[in-house]
Every structure is written in C-alpha cells, then in structure tokens.
C-alpha cells in the first residue's frame, strides 16, 4: 500500500503542493485529475521518491519512502510525461538498456523484452530506431520501458499527451488490461474521460491541493443527482409542455432558445414516456440528449474553472 501523509512541497517561494493525503491499495486504480500546473507531477515525484517532500511523508507498506526508497523503487514502474528514451537507439536496444539498469540479464532480459514488445504492439518495429517512430509508438515504448522489471505498482503521468486518437485508444486498452491483470495504478491526466474509464477512485487536484476525492459516482453527486434531457422538435407546443409537467410533476421543465430542458432525478428513465407523450400531442422530436454530470462539471463546480483552462 502506498500512502501520502500531509505532503507539502515548496520550491523557493512557490508552494507547489500543500497538505496532500492519498492512499493506493493493492490492485486499485486511482486517478489524479487536475489542470496543468495543479501540482500533479510534483506529487508523483514525491510519491515515487524522486524528490523529497518539504513536509509530510510517503509510506510504502508502512515503511517510510523518504528514509528507505529502495523497497518502493523495486516494486515501482513510472511512465513519465516526457518520452524518456534514447532516440538514436532501436526499440529493442532501449528496452535492453532499461532492463539492464534494473538488473535483468541474459535469457531473462531477452524474454522480458519480447513480452513487453508484444504487450505494447511493437514487435514488428523492434529493430527500428526510435526517432523514426510516430508519437504514439514512442508513448507505447515509454510505457514498455516502465514495465520491464515487472512492477506491482505503476505510476503514469499524462501518458497520452499529444498523440492521435488511434494510439490513445491503444494505450488506454493496454492500461486497462494491466489493471485487469491486477496492477496497482496511479494515473494522472487532465483528460477526465481517461480517468473515468480507467480509475475506480479519483483525486481531484487544483493549485497544489486535493480538493475532492472518491469514486466517480460520489464525485459526480457533489454536483447533482439529476439528469437533464434536452429536447428539440419541429414545433414545441404549449400543450406538449403541459402534458410533460402533468406526467413528471417533480421535474423542472423550462424552454431555452427553442430547446426544452427537463431536469429530473437520474434514477428515472423517461425517454420512452416522453416520446409517447410527444406522439400523442403530434410533436415530432428531432433530437433528444440525456446529460448527466461529468468530472468536468465536478471540477467546474468545485473551482469555478474548466479543467483545461
């Protein structure tokens, strides 16, 4: 178990991280969500023993990482935000290099390299020089280099920045597979949909502080338990609106710019009823969108700013 207790980091006059408390249980996938400059990378650097906190402590299986980083380092794989690879070497040479650094050698090194190449889908390109790779391939190899020594906990810092949607999907699938295989994951991103897809528990960070944490559902409930249905029709008659109000007495129904907005609790499934009422009132619905709160809304609700501002 990896635990951060009251982590605090100050660089000269700038307070990068303030009083961060986090916990990762074995096999858990945890997201760290926040905009650029929120302090995510500094937190990760402290958690992975790269930098010392100004105050507070990191514990790995109840042993202080500040005092004894070796135990954590053996079990830890880190995928940095940068492409931490030698561009002049081939994919295989890079993996061999990082494998050797972790003490792998001989047949074990060869086997492990092949396994990783297969996992990240680069077996066919293993002898190609990294600088000839696309952004997505480099990102995949960047992940592969962190998996060579078979870590039990993986920290990923924005692993999909600046790549095409296809490579992004491939990487997310790979990570999902790792989580399913039991890997403990700490995933940082400012893409809330990635965090939503991969993580059971989410910490939201802003301006150096954890501002909220919990499961997706818990966090979303901070905004609202309601859903909003947006309806567009050829003619939205007053009669139709009244019929809806009669059928859904607890719903908030209002019209904005020729769109009918119906807000009601999420546990109701009203679409079939709405379409039936529309048919009865000779209203042709041209579009219906059901909106539930997203993590973006949660962030907006908590900070008053959008995640990608």
């Amino acid at each position: 178990m990896l635990q951060a207790i009251d982590l605090h980091k100050k660089f000269k006059t700038k307070e990068a991280v303030r009083k961060v408390n986090m916990q990762l249980e074995a096999g858990e996938s945890v997201g760290l969500l926040g905009p650029n400059g929120a302090g995510k990378s500094t937190t990760i650097s402290m958690l992975s023993s790269l930098i010392m906190p100004t105050n507070g402590e990191v514990l790995w299986n109840n042993v202080s990482v500040n005092k004894n980083p070796e135990a954590l380092r053996k079990a830890l794989g880190v995928v940095p935000q940068e492409i931490a690879l030698y561009p002049e070497l081939s994919a295989k040479e890079n993996l061999h290099f990082f494998g050797r650094i972790y003490g792998l050698k001989g047949q074990l090194l060869v086997e492990r390299t092949e396994e990783i190449l297969q996992k990240i889908g680069l077996t066919d390109r293993k002898n190609d020089i990294v600088k000839t790779f696309s952004g997505g391939m480099k990102r995949r190899l960047n992940i592969g280099a962190a998996l060579l020594h078979n870590p039990s906990i993986l920290i990923m810092d924005e692993p999909t920045v600046g790549i095409d949607p296809q490579s992004r999907a491939y990487i997310l699938d790979t990570v999902k597979q790792l989580v399913e295989e039991g890997m403990t994951l700490l995933y940082t991103s400012h893409y809330m949909e990635e965090v939503e897809l991969l993580c059971d528990k989410i910490y939201i960070m802003d301006q150096g502080e954890i501002i909220a944490y919990g499961t997706k559902e818990t966090l979303k409930s901070l905004v609202s338990d309601n859903q909003t249905i947006e309806l567009k029709a050829h003619i939205l008659s007053q009669k139709f609106e009244e019929a809806l109000k009669k059928y859904f007495p607890t719903a908030n129904i209002r019209k904005e710019d020729e769109i009918l907005l119906i807000t009601m609790p999420q546990n109701e499934e009203p679409l079939a009823t709405i379409f039936a009422i529309a048919a009865k009132n000779a209203v042709t619905i041209t579009s219906a969108i059901v909106k539930v709160p997203s993590l973006e809304d949660v962030f907006l609700h908590l900070t008053g700013r959008a995640l990608r501002d």
């Binding site: 023993s49 790269l50 380092r73 880190v78 940068e82 931490a84 690879l85 030698y86």
Partner: peptide, 9 residues
C-alpha cells in the same frame, strides 16, 4: 526524463 528513470532504478 531518462535521468529520473535511472534514479528510480
């Protein structure tokens, strides 16, 4: 970031 990777190893 190679430097940090090596430090972590």
């Amino acid at each position: 970031g190679i430097w940090n990777r090596l430090k972590l190893a």
